[in-house]
Design a protein around this nucleic acid. Structure first.
Length: 613
DNA sequence: ACCAACTGTCATACA
DNA sequence: ACTGTATGACAGTTG
């Protein structure tokens, strides 16, 4: 294993060094370079995983009968043998089954060739799966720290040449012998296998990318990618860690990859980012010259690479400013007090793109992710009608307007023009707002402008009291984090009061917006109900009219029938009864009586007898 | 100047 | 008790 890592990394590092020496933009080149390698090795890894899974299935069946010691597989729900070293391997491998199966089933055309490759691999390296499993375990163990008994990943600050976070101690089978490694390399060179791998890579590119320990940048301790990979893996949990270079490139986008339920873990790990990483430590290495450029200009890579590549613009936030635990005052000053550095180093620097789905407007669940939004991101979301977050994008954008202004130029991806308009406006209106006067409105969106005014007031208040946090942080941090943040900094009473007021106002503002939104929705619903009720009323009236018509017709028919019956009645003398003198009445038992009308008056007075017909 | 709509804020109740 | 949310009411801003 180590040999393989060293072997691959040596080649890779040579290439990298060449690129470095040639002053090539490593941000792009490296990705392509590493990407291919990663794809290939990733495919191999997956093949090994699959093969190992098959082997493990056999072992399970055999050992099930033999071993009394059983263990419940968390993934499959079935009991599997628990050897000292294989048990964690199983649990580490099984999570990948789903992806593998999907990938295999999808490529029906090359299934045979791929299976052949697998078969060849299985026959050639019957024991190597464990090594591969260790790799996978590396990923899964970190991604599911709660589930795995393995020790946590290495401290991020600990940069060792060993790319693997400390998985369980390597067993003899986990290490690849040089011979096997050579065979592996030969296998990799097989055109057929490469074709299969390329097919697999296309699938995995869209879904997942796994970090390979023997990737060059990981291998080299000088590259700070690896810790970032670890970090990301920790944060993204099951999200299938991205390649280190990707993660490094869009550190800010990582949370967006993570499902909402992973935000908590992200949040838990966030401080480590700050404490263990200097932003320049890993960005400056790879983007010594590009950091500032990327932070101020559109990215050529955006849109040309994969979807995840589009998140590159989010890199500057992390590169320039830490999360809130990193000297907030510093970031505050940089973001607001220094107009020059405001563009790249604004508060939005601490924001990263996160799925807003994880946050509900009515709750503080913006939590980590919400305040990690950059305003430009929020604007993008606002301008993206098709996004799922469109419902809440307004509120978010309102929340983060101050950062929007401050960071207008920092991540000017989509609307540099508009943001450039906003920024000078902010500076001009700030003094004006103090006097209660507002200057010309530049923003098209009145809503945004107002929120800007409001939040800029709070910003100014916070600035006046030297509150070392951003308004967005104050408002959107969860209670625990907020309290923790408060406890970390010695704030006087005025500062505390202001911070809590800002938080209260910010939350209440959102609540008011929600309330009004609901109110409007209720009005719409009520109007709709009113319309439907009107329609119902019309329908019922029409039905009533129809029923009246029918009733009238039936009465007429009954009257004619009545007369017809009367015309057929005869007395003893054969004379017909006069309808004016007699009437027909039906008793409860069904019998019909001919009742003299004259006697009706009688009936009232004296109960006369009725003559049955 | 007036007005309507929008928005932020406060006070209060409630969970 | 604290925090967040909901909502009515009020005031400021804006077109």
């Amino acid at each position: 294993m180590d040999m393989e890592v060293l072997h691959c990394s040596q080649q890779d590092m040579n290439l990298i060094d060449i690129l470095w020496n040639q002053d090539i933009d490593l941000g792009a080149r490296r990705e392509v370079f590493d990407y291919n390698h990663r794809q290939k090795e990733h495919e191999l890894q997956r093949q090994r995983e699959l093969e190992e899974e098959k082997r493990l299935d056999l072992l399970r069946e055999q050992e099930k009968a033999l071993l009394a010691q059983l263990q419940l597989d968390e993934e499959t729900g079935e009991y599997i043998p628990r050897p000292p070293s294989s048990a964690p391997l199983q649990s580490a491998v099984t999570p990948l089954e789903g992806t593998q199966n999907v990938s295999f089933t999808e490529e029906s055309g090359d299934a045979m060739s791929f299976d052949e490759c697998l078969q060849l691999l299985a026959e050639t390296f019957p024991v190597e799966e464990t090594e591969n499993a260790s790799v996978c375990q590396d990923t899964t163990a970190v991604s599911a720290p709660m589930m795995s008994p393995e020790p946590p990943a290495l401290p991020l600050a600990t940069l060792t040449p060993d790319p693997l976070p400390p998985p369980p101690p390597p067993t003899p089978t986990q290490r690849m012998s040089p011979d096997l490694e050579q065979v592996w390399m030969e296998l990799l060179s097989l055109p057929e296998l490469q074709q299969c791998l390329s097919m697999q890579m296309e699938d995995t590119l869209e879904t997942t990318t796994y970090p390979l320990p023997n990737s060059p940048e990981v291998q080299n301790p000088n590259y700070s990618f690896y810790p970032m990979t670890n970090l990301t893996e920790e944060g993204t949990n099951n999200v299938n860690a991205c390649p280190a270079e990707f993660i490094n490139t869009f550190d800010g986008s990582v949370p967006s990859i993570a499902p909402p339920d992973n935000l908590n873990q992200m949040k838990a790990k966030a401080p480590q980012i700050n404490t263990n990483f200097g932003a320049e430590s890993f960005c400056g290495v790879f983007y010594p010259n590009a950091v500032l450029e990327e932070s101020s200009g559109p990215h050529s890579l955006e849109g040309t690479e994969s979807d995840t590549m589009s998140d590159i613009p989010n890199k500057p936030p992390f590169t320039s400013v830490d999360l809130y635990s990193l000297s907030p005052e510093d970031s505050f000053d940089r973001g607001k007090q220094n107009p020059i550095t405001e563009l790249p180093d604004s508060d939005s620097g601490i924001f990263s793109n996160t799925s807003p789905n994880a946050s509900s407007p009515g709750k503080s669940v913006y939590g980590e992710g919400s305040f990690l939004y950059s305003d430009s991101d929020m604007e993008e979301m606002d301008h993206n009608p098709g996004s799922a977050e469109s419902d809440y994008s307004e509120m978010f954008s309102l929340n983060f307007q101050p950062d929007d202004l401050q960071s207008a130029g920092s991540v000017c991806v989509g609307q540099p023009q508009q943001q450039q308009e906003k920024k000078p406006k902010q500076h001009q209106t700030d003094p004006a707002e103090e006097s209660g006067h507002n200057n010309t409105p530049f923003t098209k969106d009145k809503q945004k402008k107002r929120s800007n005014v409001r939040l800029s007031r709070d910003e100014q208040r916070a600035r006046a009291l030297k509150i070392p946090f951003t308004v967005a942080m104050i408002i959107n941090l969860p209670v625990d984090d907020f309290n923790e943040l408060m406890s970390k900094h010695q704030l006087n009473e005025a500062q505390l009061a202001l911070v809590r007021d800002i938080r209260r106002r910010g939350k209440n503002k959102v609540a008011a917006q929600n309330c009004r939104k609901r109110k409007m929705e209720n009005i719409v619903v009520l109007e709709s109900d009113l319309d439907s009720l009107k329609d119902e009323k019309e329908r019922l009236l029409s039905e009533k009219s129809q029923n009246m018509t029918n009733l009238k017709e039936m009465k007429q028919q009954l009257s004619s029938l009545y007369l017809e019956v009367f015309s057929m009645l005869r007395d003893e003398k054969g004379n017909s009864y006069s309808p004016s003198d007699y009437s027909l009445q039906q008793s409860t038992n069904g019998s019909i009586f001919l009742v003299p009308r004259i006697k009706k008056t009688f009936i009232k007075r004296e109960d006369t007898h009725l003559s049955p017909v």
